[in-house]
């Protein structure tokens, strides 16, 4: 008896909250996404009726140029930003673990510090470094003849990428360092006896063995990218380049709370979730394939 009831007792609090705040809302979102409304009267003052809409909202979402553009923007953002961040985190981790550096503890703490700064506050801080007139960086660059408008329509995506990279590089670096520390010392000894250079050690011992950690960081970063919301939303008031539908998440938010189109907002949310799921699965698949091949 004991082993049949005990696990459920232990699971119960978690499951109740988990089902109530995640599973139920997901099903609600799916339900909403198949619904459309009909309003009677000029502004729906005669009441409104819901009806089953099949895949209308999904078709509308995927043919909505702004929404598709926002997904494309996030893919571009993800490819560039996630790559830069993971490469930077890996290089920093290898350098810190190479024992060639002085004060590694200080550097590690410094790089990790931004993780403790909420995205909202990080964005506020960086935005002050982007605004002409307030930013010393813009002043310094201007003094040497470089005029960059960090908040300009073409530049602002990379200004956001900078904020995200700044916040999460150190965190990802710590995951990789942890993995590096678990590499058995004998491997290094063997490499040393073979006279391998440290570059070679990095390439043939360290990088293959930290692949699981890299995968983990890549997947979390992909999910993070698709969720991008706070940073662009805060910069929206300062940059003409950011519209209300700049990222998929902002788009869903706008449809829900500004455009009165809940069915569409739900369909977009579901698409974001499915996309995150698919991208993560693809990333895992690629990783497994490479492992087999390697």
């Amino acid at each position: 008896m004991r082993s049949r009831t005990a696990p459920w007792v232990l699971l119960a609090p978690f499951l109740v909250v988990f089902i109530g705040t995640m599973i139920v809302p997901i099903f609600m979102a799916i339900g909403y996404s198949f619904t459309s409304v009909t309003r009677s009267g000029l502004l729906g003052e005669g009441g409104l009726t819901n009806s089953f809409a099949w895949f209308d909202n999904y078709v509308a979402a995927l043919t909505n140029a702004n929404f598709v553009a926002s997904i494309g923007r996030m893919i571009l953002f993800g490819i560039v930003q996630v790559t830069v961040m993971i490469v930077a985190a890996t290089v920093l981790a290898l350098l810190l673990e190479s024992a060639s550096a002085k004060w590694p503890g200080f550097f590690r703490a410094t790089y990790f510090l931004p993780y403790g700064i909420p995205g909202v506050i990080a964005t506020i801080l960086w935005s002050f470094l982007y605004i002409p007139g307030l930013s010393p960086i813009v002043d310094v660059l201007g003094a040497v003849g470089i005029n960059i408008d960090f908040l300009g329509p073409n530049m602002v995506l990379w200004s956001i990428a900078n904020i995200v990279t700044w916040t999460y590089t150190g965190y990802n670096m710590l995951i990789i360092i942890a993995q590096l520390k678990s590499i058995p010392g004998e491997l290094y000894e063997a490499a040393k006896l073979d006279g391998a250079s440290s570059l070679r050690v990095a390439r043939s011992i360290q990088l293959p063995l930290i692949r699981p950690a890299l995968m983990l960081t890549v997947i979390f970063s992909i999910i993070g990218t698709l969720q991008l919301f706070a940073e662009p939303r805060l910069l929206q008031t300062m940059s003409a380049g950011i519209t209300s539908e700049y990222t998929p998440n902002m788009s869903a938010y706008a449809f829900a709370f500004q455009y009165n189109d809940i069915g569409m907002a739900a369909a977009q949310s579901v698409i974001i979730a499915v996309a995150a799921f698919l991208l993560s699965a693809i990333a895992l698949g690629v990783s497994n394939w490479m492992e087999k091949r390697g």
Binding site: M22, I23, P25, L226, Q227, I262, I272, A276
Partner: peptide, 26 residues
């Protein structure tokens, strides 16, 4: 047990923001 694992794994992959809207209505 497997079902719970699968459910929770799905939950990890769904962006938290995707549930914010239905949660608001709830």
């Amino acid at each position: 047990r497997k079902l719970v694992y699968g459910l929770v794994l799905g939950g990890v992959l769904v962006p938290g923001t995707a549930v914010a809207l239905p949660l608001f209505f709830m």
